[in-house]
Design a protein around this nucleic acid. Structure first.
Lengths: 199, 199
DNA sequence: GTCCCATGGCTAACGGCCTTAGTCACCTGC
DNA sequence: GCAGGTGACTAAGGCCGTTAGCCATGGGAC
């Protein structure tokens, strides 16, 4: 019954992923994953390097999935239009895969885990491309990317964790946020300097 | 030696707060707090309702501290200028009190803990006031507030957790973000409708 | 001044978690 | 048909939160 033998690392990660999306990333415990696979938790160590290793695997999985969603969203779109599509793809991803999304937020020092660092960085490439197309000066690219990411991440963090008290059209709030950020980027691309509060 | 007798709930919360700011909110464990107070962890139950109760107390503490920081920042400023000051006060608070800041992010359903919900909501009042002064239409107030909060929260989440790989002038990135959001709000207040990506 | 009892510490113990060490059965390759 | 490695297992230890039950202290009532 069940798989008597022959669990693979991918099986373990897949189980963790399901668990994360269903019950939250914090529910991904070796005990829970093991139970889901009808196995005792020490057995998982044959396939995955402890809880930390599993989390790292999940982060890779998440980075790649989000990157693919971005690539698909930006396909045959450019500039601001692509940015808008990216923003909505971001939200859709976070809503559809909350656990995986949370797993992608794992922060890593570049010299601590270069591989994962690179994978997480690759996610942003479609964003960088779209920003350049939109006319953002290269010198401000880092700042604008960070702003774009901050806005989206902050919103999803609040939405997913229930930080928005009343469900008063979260959808529309998101559109407002995107519009606000995009208009700022647009102005910045046209005008050159940042629009306000520039020291 | 030390306090032989007479630990108070406030002592416990204060110890937790120090621990949170020094080592991160996840380091706030009953065992760690107890050790810091030279006491065994079961003793804390006399003063605080378990780990959850302690976290709740921390959330109150955090909400009030942040609210005060906001009130101070907005004092004798109005509109966009006040918003800019609020933004910088937000970042300063998060940087100075990372643990407390994290504790403030605890999400609560309105009917689950109305008191805490109210305390957390009160934090945003100075923001609402400034937005109104800045000319944001009342119908869009919720959305703009959410956008403002999302941007700030997302940025700090990324900054504090080390999500910005290179420390390439995080300071300047933040000014960019603030400028971008403020210009969006400004345009929205003047123009009426949201600037882009509407519908 | 004495007694009583609430306060606020404590130890003991349980269950859950991650993890390591050591064991054992099966499947595969020779 | 045998040997060995793979991948499961049990046992055990450490850290966590939590509950139950104990006991000393000290302040207030008389």
């Amino acid at each position: 019954m069940a798989r008597k033998r022959g669990l693979t690392p991918d099986d373990v990660v897949a189980a963790a992923r399901e668990l994360a999306d269903a019950d939250g990333l914090e529910a991904v415990t070796l005990a829970a994953v093991a139970e889901r696979l009808s196995v005792r938790s020490p057995s998982l160590y044959s396939h995955v390097d402890g809880l930390d290793g599993l989390r790292r695997r999940l982060a890779f999985e998440a980075a790649e999935a989000l990157r693919l969603a971005f690539v698909a969203a930006a396909a045959d779109r450019t500039g601001l239009e692509a940015l808008e599509a990216l923003a909505h793809a971001y939200r859709a991803f976070a809503r559809d895969h909350p656990g995986l999304y949370a797993a992608a937020q794992r922060a890593v020092e570049p010299d601590e885990d270069p591989e994962l660092y690179a994978a997480l960085g690759a996610v942003l490439e479609p964003v960088l491309g779209a920003l350049l197309e939109a006319g953002v000066p290269e010198g401000e690219l880092i700042h604008v990317t960070r702003a774009f990411r901050s806005a989206l991440h902050g919103f999803m963090e609040l939405e997913l964790k229930g930080g928005f008290g009343i469900p008063e059209s979260v959808e529309e709030s998101f559109r407002h946020l995107v519009g606000l950020v995009l208009s700022g980027i647009e102005g910045l691309a046209a005008g050159g300097e940042a629009p306000a509060a520039q020291d």
